[in-house]
Design a protein around this nucleic acid. Structure first.
Lengths: 297, 297
DNA sequence: AGAATTGTCTGACTAGAGTCAGAGAATGGA
DNA sequence: TCCATTCTCTGACTCTAGTCAGACAATTCT
């Protein structure tokens, strides 16, 4: 990436924190310290556990939160109680007054956002909102992390379950992992394989595996899935790039994969990432297309 | 503007402050308090006066800044001296160590921006940078304020000088305000006129006047100018909308104006804002086009 | 020359936002 | 049953980021 792009990003940061950041921090104001306001906001309609609250606010100190809650309690905005089945765990919920105050914050925030749009004419307003959506979407994409994990990891299993469920839905013949050529994912475990999980805010949103059998003619990509909610963020492309790098690092000069014709966006992705369609190189009963790509050492 | 747009703006704020805001504040970190880092940053290559520094940082308390400078001085990052011709005024400049530290901040900031782009593929990277540019541009547009001032106000005079200079450049016949039908701007003074000045971060970036002579058949727009650096932000449109509102408020049902053919973007603007070209309604020697618009009471 | 103004500095405070080290209650496991 | 663990709370701190009032020096105005 070039210096010009970096400069533009920094310029953006400056402008946006000046204009939006202030808005974000100050509207929470309302005479109340930001810490309390954030808490009030995060408690939500049906209350929650205090430890969960701490976690959501980025792992705040328990003593600190306790004190903040005491202040809110003193102001009559929340009530704190213990959980039925484990009385060490405290729960908070908003009182009517708390709810009212949160609604005030909410309206304030609405007004601040409206004030931002207000000086613009309709067409520019639409353009701003559209560009904001684009920035947000792409920032979200940039926030997704991709890490190698053991295929037995809960996040990996979550993705695989979702993957299998989706295949069962979309294949005309249904899908039963046991009938597939890779009945279990043990082969994707290091060192003879690799399994990647993508996460957004800690939640798993995609996976991709690869078999790296020493002596095999090619590294083979398996079980690639992206959560429907995070499609269009370039995650498939990222998985492929990452897997290719790892395959190259293990000395492979070819990567291949098979796929079902029902997965048309995947087929498109493979084409656009430089994969060539080749003859069947295995007997995978669920496959209709076989792809191969030579990778530069 | 609708609730959906407001919601999108708020969503944007949340994502961006989470991702960029943190970046903006934390990269300044480097062990040093944010206040000191900001100062270090604002001093600039060739130093500056302390009072100017305070002003640029949003009117900080002089005692506070004094203390911050003392800390930076103690750390050997800046030297403070007095101005030659007025020894009350203190000046700061960076020492070599200060410059080095600022460069570290700079590189840090670059790296943070790069890290933001890093997970994206080329095409998404370009799209993000483009969308950031658009957001920034439109936020800048939304930051511009438009206020009525006396035409003798320094900001008004600044704009008028720039306006005259630009006309002199672009008209094939040159431009001499004295030959024009409005030799001085007194007629644009309240109450028989109005004069608007647009400002960005306090700096004047555009003006527009209107004659509102009681009994005249129409309100007449005069001396509209937008700083070349802020063109494309919809400021001309904003001026017209604001002036039309004021004309309507004074009971006028028609607004008119004349313009020179050299100002082709202005001519385009008038057309697109609903003005109709009409026969000459005055003898303005510099005019080639005359426009009129009926405004709804 | 004397008075008012301007710019800076010092001291004394405040409030927010945390951190850290226990203490104490409830619970789960051996 | 007892011991370790989990969760919360309290007290005692720290560090930022200011604000406010007044002192002092240099300058400008009258």
């Amino acid at each position: 990436m070039d210096a010009e792009q970096i400069h533009r990003v920094r310029q953006f940061n400056r402008t946006v924190t000046e204009r939006v950041g202030v808005l974000h921090e100050r509207y929470l104001g309302l005479g109340r310290p930001v810490g309390e306001a954030r808490l009030l906001w995060e408690i939500g309609e049906q209350g929650c556990e205090v430890r969960e609250l701490r976690e959501r606010l980025g792992g705040l100190d328990s003593g600190y939160v306790s004190r903040l809650l005491r202040a809110l309690e003193g102001a009559g905005l929340v009530t704190v109680g213990a959980l039925e089945r484990d009385r060490r765990v405290r729960t908070v919920r908003l009182t009517d007054a708390g709810r009212a105050e949160r609604d005030v914050l909410d309206r304030r925030s609405d007004r601040a956002a409206a004030a931002l749009l207000e000086p613009l004419d309709d067409s520019r307003r639409d353009r701003l909102v559209a560009a904001m959506g684009e920035v947000e979407r792409l920032l979200t994409a940039a926030t997704v992390t991709v890490d190698a994990v053991d295929p037995g990891h809960p996040d990996a299993e979550h993705c695989l379950r979702a993957y299998y469920a989706e295949l069962a839905e979309s294949f005309e013949s249904g899908f039963d992992p046991v009938r597939s050529l890779l009945p279990d994912t043990g082969e994707l475990r290091s060192p003879q394989g690799v399994f990647l999980v993508a996460r957004l805010h800690g939640e798993p949103v995609g996976c991709a595996g690869m078999k790296l059998l020493p002596g095999a003619p090619a590294a083979e990509i398996k079980r690639m899935w992206v959560d429907p909610r995070t499609r269009g963020l370039g995650l498939g492309r990222r998985f492929l790039a990452e897997l290719e790098t790892r395959a190259a690092g293990r000395g492979f000069d070819t990567v291949r994969l098979d796929t079902n014709r029902a997965l048309s966006t995947a087929v498109g992705l493979y084409h656009s990432c430089g994969f060539q369609e080749v003859a069947a190189f295995n007997d995978e009963p669920y496959a209709h297309h076989w792809f191969e790509k030579r990778i530069g050492g």
